[in-house]
């Protein structure tokens, strides 16, 4: 059977994707509507989501992630196909794209300055990122900060959907009823997972890099007060390097790129439990950058 291939220019990467499952095909199409198709023979990633042969095609049906003809992961239940595509694409980028320093962090932008939210899984990074995007910030990425090695202190956008888990899904849906979500995948390794689609305004600006200015390490602690504290640049550098996927691969180039971003950014630790207060504080922090009179050109 000949499966049609769709292509998308997702930030700096061209992706060709095909699947023989209509529901996953529609899901990917809705996630990436507004992204430009690629008119080229070369793609950075050839991905297909395929139903396995044999009994697992019908009994407790599964789905395989296939990258360049290789199946790097065990198959997942077919109902988790969309989440598998997103996680698989993260894997493709972090394992193969070393023209960027890639850090496990959300990146959003306001007033021309970007806010980097590096954090380990479960720290509340995606929830805060989604809440700020719903409050009008531009989404660059929910998962991967791509720091340009050539133009220092320049972060490339991806504008892919924000992956929310468990309670965060209903919190963001209630906070922003107009935001668009994909179908919730239940029973994954991470619990329930749903993807909030990037706003059209963020997708339109996908070719425009953002300048690093704020680095905030978020931590959701139930019933905690909203506390923002200054953090030293050395510990920020160290933690960012620890959250990086390819710092060790890039060597001195990675050191220079990270040093450049950390030097030009104000660094903070942030504890929160109330999203409204968190949005207010982050917005205030962003406004302070305008008041400080630093221009984006000075920071590049």
């Amino acid at each position: 059977m000949n499966i049609p291939t769709k292509s998308y220019q997702i930030g700096p990467f061209s992706v060709a994707v095909s699947t023989d499952v209509a529901e996953i095909d529609r899901g990917i199409e809705s996630f990436y509507q507004g992204f430009k198709p690629v008119n080229a023979k070369f793609f950075d990633f050839h991905i297909s989501l395929e139903q396995p042969r044999g009994v697992r095609r019908w009994f407790r049906p599964q789905i395989d992630f296939v990258f360049d003809g290789i199946r790097p992961f065990k198959p997942l239940p077919r109902t988790q196909g969309l989440a598998l595509f997103e996680w698989g694409l993260n894997w493709c980028i972090t394992n193969h794209c070393h023209e960027y320093l890639t850090i496990h962090a959300a990146v959003i932008e306001r007033n021309g300055f970007s806010l980097i939210l590096p954090a380990p899984p479960g720290a509340g990074k995606s929830t805060l990122c989604a809440a700020l995007v719903c409050a009008g910030w531009r989404l660059l990425s929910d998962e991967l900060a791509l720091i340009n090695l050539e133009g220092a202190n320049c972060i490339a956008p991806l504008a892919r959907p924000v992956c929310l888990k468990n309670e965060s899904i209903s919190i963001i849906k209630q906070a922003s009823p107009s935001s668009r979500f994909g179908k919730t995948c239940t029973g994954t390794n991470k619990g329930d997972v749903a993807h909030m689609m990037a706003p059209a305004s963020s997708v339109e600006l996908i070719d425009e890099c953002a300048v690093g200015r704020l680095i905030v390490f978020p931590r959701y602690i139930a019933n905690s007060k909203t506390i923002l504290t200054r953090r030293s640049k050395a510990t920020t550098f160290f933690e960012m390097a620890r959250q990086s996927f390819n710092f060790h691969v890039l060597g001195s180039k990675g050191f220079e790129a990270l040093e450049s971003v950390v030097t030009r950014s104000d660094c903070y630790d942030f504890e929160y439990s109330n999203l409204d207060e968190a949005i207010e504080l982050m917005t205030e922090l962003s406004d302070q950058q305008l008041v400080s009179g630093v221009s984006t050109e000075e920071l590049i």
Binding site: S232, K233, A234, S252, F255, E259, V262, T263
Partner: peptide, 13 residues
């Protein structure tokens, strides 16, 4: 390499 921000700690690579 040394990243030294002239305040607090520095990083050596």
């Amino acid at each position: 390499r040394l990243a030294d921000w002239r305040e607090g700690d520095a990083i050596a690579y």
